[in-house]
Amino acid sequence: MNAPRIVLFGEMGIGKTTAVRALCGDTVVDCDVANLDPDGHSKPTTTVGADFGIVQLGNGEELHIYGSPGQSRFDFMRRWLLGFAMGVMVLVDLADADALDHAQQTIAVVGELASEAAVVVLVARPAHPDSIQGFAEELASRVGWAVPVMQIDVRQRQQMLDALELLVAALPDPTY
């Protein structure tokens, strides 16, 4: 049986690997390798394949957490990742001019491939509350519904738990 999963999307370097680790602690498999694209991003390592962590709910039941690779050449993997997704977290940096487009496109893909999945957008870099509010309003007007938007420090486990709780609350049909 495939366990329900939550998938994290976001541009390279936004903190998906860190977020998966914050939620799953020791039960993480990552695929970090040296970053061979220093022009694209200055981080020393990057993820090839998908980060994977497990939340043990007890009695052998599991929630799987995946971090989708940030590079666009791994787009094919999204279809597989979204196959059993009950929720999606979209990590954005509002200082990135493409943040709104990226969030809109990801939500559109989720709507196509996992229409029952809940979606939250996590602002993973410091941003002013007015900027976040403006982003939330523009995103809602683009996608046609009020996507939850939350500022977060992905390194903080409690904040990731807040994000997960919000995602669960946003499930359109909690029939799992």
Binding site: G25, T27, V29, L57, E61, R157, L161
Partner: peptide, 21 residues
Amino acid sequence: RLKRWLSDARSASPAKEPHAL
């Protein structure tokens, strides 16, 4: 069960420093 796990995780001490397997 996920909600109960969330509740337990909040009340538990901070997670240990994770390491890659």
